Amino acid sequence: MPRILDVADDVRAEIGDEEADRLLAGESAPGAYDCTSCRTPGDAEHEHTSTVLFVGEETAVLAFAHAGCLPSQVVRVTEEQLQGAVASITASEASEASESGVPQQAVLGVTSGLVLLDGELHPALVVEPTGPIARPGTTGPDDAFLPLLREQGFAPVHEVSAVPQVLHGWSVLLAVGQLHAVLQPGPDGGSPVAWWQAHQPLQVTEGWRTAANKRQAVLVYAAPAGGIGRQPREDLLREALDKAAAQGLLVAAAMPLAGT
């Protein structure tokens, strides 16, 4: 039976027209699946479904997601991350994947807020993992989240008082007034890939959206697990940012706004 599938052009290019047509015809795509994003059941015979291709250095894995959770796309990952993706696709192995130390987008918590710098409001995102992030290929207890970001070009912040430098190649994707993703440069200069992607588009306030459209840039702050915490108000969020900066637990970058 034909499937209600989205197969993006980049996915088709990777798997070939013949395999893409077989998927659409239902010859190689499952009817029921576990969404690779939200982990809940889906049905490609009755629900709009995206094909998501995880590509490592040597292997590739095709997964499926609710179209409302993820668009069809190619996700470039390391071979170690691909093993974590393989585990996460199978629901019975989900707990094993969460214990493997493989960094995945799902462990990143993102909060939006306005930050006052030099008397002007700037749209900001605060990123904090729900647990320690191990360096790919390792399983040790050390949290490598901040060192990994510094290697990508995020700058240490010791005082939240100035606009951080622009991190070229990265961007924040806003569409129809909702936050969708933080994009990073693709491998070897290829198309941008999602560093973080919302399971479902996140609502932002009108003030945040107005500031983002005005400045065409978003400030992205990041701290290790426990460095910020979930703060219910912007004043408390700012206090937490200042405290993390004073403790040497904060990095930041300015990113161009993609979308509106």
Results as ranks from 00 to 15, higher is better:
residue 241 L to V: 10
residue 227 G to K: 05
residue 238 R to K: 10
residue 248 G to E: 04
residue 249 L to Y: 02
residue 242 D to T: 12
residue 245 A to E: 08
residue 251 V to M: 09
residue 228 I to A: 05
residue 252 A to N: 12
residue 242 D to M: 11
residue 231 Q to E: 15
residue 249 L to A: 12
residue 240 A to E: 02
residue 242 D to F: 08
residue 243 K to F: 04
residue 247 Q to K: 15
residue 227 G to S: 06
residue 250 L to G: 06
residue 252 A to H: 11
residue 238 R to S: 09
residue 245 A to I: 11
residue 227 G to I: 04
residue 232 P to A: 12
residue 246 A to W: 10
residue 225 A to E: 03
residue 234 E to L: 10
residue 242 D to W: 08
residue 236 L to M: 13
residue 229 G to Y: 01
residue 222 A to R: 01
residue 238 R to P: 00
residue 238 R to D: 08
residue 239 E to N: 10
residue 244 A to V: 04
residue 247 Q to T: 07
residue 252 A to L: 10
residue 244 A to G: 05
residue 222 A to V: 04
residue 250 L to P: 07
residue 238 R to N: 04
residue 239 E to G: 13
residue 236 L to K: 11
residue 252 A to F: 09
residue 241 L to G: 05
residue 229 G to M: 02
residue 242 D to H: 14
residue 237 L to Y: 07
residue 239 E to K: 11
residue 232 P to R: 11
residue 235 D to R: 14
residue 238 R to A: 13
residue 226 G to H: 02
residue 232 P to M: 09
residue 227 G to R: 02
residue 243 K to I: 01
residue 252 A to C: 14
residue 231 Q to I: 08
residue 232 P to I: 10
residue 228 I to W: 06
residue 235 D to T: 14
residue 249 L to W: 05
residue 251 V to L: 10
residue 246 A to E: 15
residue 248 G to P: 03
residue 237 L to M: 15
residue 232 P to G: 08
